[in-house]
């Protein structure tokens, strides 16, 4: 069952492209990473999903329904990249306002999240640091136990201990059935936590699959220490020479690689599967 189904979505801001003919499917229970550099269209896609901005064309359905009215947001939790609240309100009042707007009692889950994230609910919003405002955003987005959790650059501003706690909370939610869509340009976050990922470039999805499959391409990451002639190697990408080591992504016949390597005297050789970061760079070059 698809939780998010986006077909041929296009959004322009005047003449500037936000997304164009974007297609994306997120299945129930997915922990989905949405990767791309700044300006690629990640936030535009998420804001379209939340109906904060209006599409030019295409279709968006969430929970198998067109997002014509706001009903679907009852089961959605959203954490923006920067969380802003009403400055003159106390944290507890913001959290209660959020549950009142959803018309449900979230006291129990709220208390659990507040304690786990070590959030002082009696402080006023204008007394909070960036990271603490983010914690308020996390509680607001999770306290009603949503079926779909949408996160935009979730860990910016959180210290490493809270990041760890946050990811273990997400894992528990995901294990109990919550679908997660997480945009990020920190590739290790996606690689370590997500089961699927999509890469967006210039407003269009250029690859979307299981993280394992995306990483398991025919390409290999090669690191060679020794006196080799790089011109002997064909089908290489991302070539670098650092600390007397040649490293590159090789996407050709492995026998040709061995033949080329055997021409030189080697000090060290490593043949590895490329990381998601290298795959990402591969798509972006």
């Amino acid at each position: 069952m698809s939780i998010i189904n986006i077909k041929n979505l296009t959004k322009y801001y005047g003449k500037s492209k936000g997304v164009e003919n974007l297609n994306l499917v997120v299945e129930k229970g997915d922990y989905f990473g949405f990767i791309g550099p700044n300006g690629a269209g990640k936030s535009t896609t998420l804001r379209l999903l939340l109906s904060l901005i209006k599409k030019d064309s295409g279709e968006i359905s969430v929970f198998d329904k067109d997002i014509k009215d706001e009903e679907y947001l009852k089961d959605v939790g959203y954490l923006p990249s920067e969380s802003f609240f009403y400055n003159n309100m106390k944290v507890i009042d913001v959290l209660k306002l959020s549950s009142d707007l959803r018309n449900i009692n979230c006291d129990e889950e709220r208390n659990i999240l507040v304690n786990r994230l070590k959030l002082d609910v009696n402080k006023k919003i204008n007394e909070l640091s960036f990271g603490n405002r983010k914690k308020v955003g996390i509680v607001c987005a999770l306290q009603h136990k949503p079926k779909l959790f949408i996160l935009d650059e979730p860990t910016t501003g959180l210290d490493p201990l809270i990041q760890k706690e946050f990811y273990s909370i997400l894992k528990e939610y995901n294990d109990s059935g919550t679908t997660i869509l997480m945009s990020s340009h920190v590739l290790s976050e996606v690689e370590n936590h997500c089961n699927k990922a999509a890469i967006i470039k210039n407003g269009t999805i250029i690859a979307s699959d299981y993280v394992d499959k995306l990483s398991k391409t025919t390409a290999h990451q090669i690191s060679v220490k020794g006196n080799i002639n790089i011109d002997d190697f064909k089908d290489i990408k991302n070539y670098k020479y650092e600390n007397e080591t040649h490293s590159f992504l090789y996407n050709g016949d492995i026998n040709e690689l061995i033949k080329a390597l055997s021409k030189s005297k080697l000090v060290d050789l490593k043949i590895e599967e490329p990381s998601l970061e290298e795959i990402f760079l591969h798509y972006y070059k």
């Binding site: 706001e70 947001l73 802003f84 009403y86 400055n87 707007l101």
Partner: peptide
């Protein structure tokens, strides 16, 4: 004040 994102991501 950038609070519209908070308000409109609720079912209102």
């Amino acid at each position: 004040n950038k609070t519209s994102e908070f308000l409109l991501s609720h079912p209102v």
